[in-house]
Amino acid sequence: MRKTILILSAAAAALAAAPAMAAGGGGGSGGLPSSSGPRVDPAEAFRDGVEALQAKDYKKAEKKFGDVLSAAPKHPEANYYMALAKIGNGKSKNAVRYLEKAIKERPNFVEARERLALVSIELGEPDVAREQLTAIEGLKAECAAAGDCEAAFVARVDTAIERVNAAMGAATATEGPDAAAPAETAEPEGAPEDASGDAPSDDQSSDDQPADDQLSLFFAPRDEGVSHYMGAVRLINEARYGEAIADLHKAQAIVGPHPDILNYLGYSHRKLGIMDKAQDYYAQALALDPDHKGATEYLGELYLEIGEIDEARRQLARLDAICAFGCVEREDLARLIALKETDRRAERQ
């Protein structure tokens, strides 16, 4: 039997901590709980928002995804869902910037491109729709050229092309932009149907104890999102970073913004040499949890790799402050800095 991580479709999901491997490994807030973090639990707000969308409670969805985006403004799915909520509330024009943001953060986000095309037709901007249609067709060609198209992805792309073409045709036939308004404008299609998973709970006693703002993903019950995360951990440990990124995207689409996922997105991009993107993901992880040990460590490693040793030392100092009782993240970064310093000394001699 091929090894698989269990997928419990309706299981609860909580999140939080932890990392991958020898080479790296995340390292969320495992060990001592972090003492700081967002006031809003973005993953919980994400779950609530998804539920509200499913219930067609667009006002609540807008509020919840507003909370999510205040903590994680770049999260592509949250931007997309916010756009759906806006459309549901009759504010299609306002939805555009969220769709654009979702696409900027994830250029292969077919659903967002399709929705932007449909909204643009509704708003009388067929050029934008055509632009998105071309981009969607390009995605299909791109994955075909790479020889790694998943059947589900191709099917979704084909559906999007069909829908956009149909809407453009209808708009042309009536020669009036308003006539092409998609019927689903009031009730946006595309809301998640099976975004199962309880959001990460924020179990906390009433005392002052620093509690885990986000429980460890590593120990969370395996809903589908967490299963994708664990799959990504394994892929990272096998140095299959591209596949890991795909799994991490699937995880964050279900789980919502989570520092562990963002940290590993940073890690995987760094291992692929995409440093600017890696740094951006680490920054997003640390925005959600400033005491995230894994992201702090790996940001330090990134600085080492680009030759900014003083910045790496600053991350080490952060870990010294975060890890009052020691932590492997601190030890690993300290070791790598020492190695780098030894190399530099050798080069000078």
């Binding site: 990392p19 490994g25 492997v328 993240e329």
Partner: peptide
């Protein structure tokens, strides 16, 4: 002690 290990194991405690 988890410090015996590396990678995921150590980070998970």
């Amino acid at each position: 002690t988890p410090f015996l290990f590396g990678g995921t194991a150590a980070r998970a405690g």
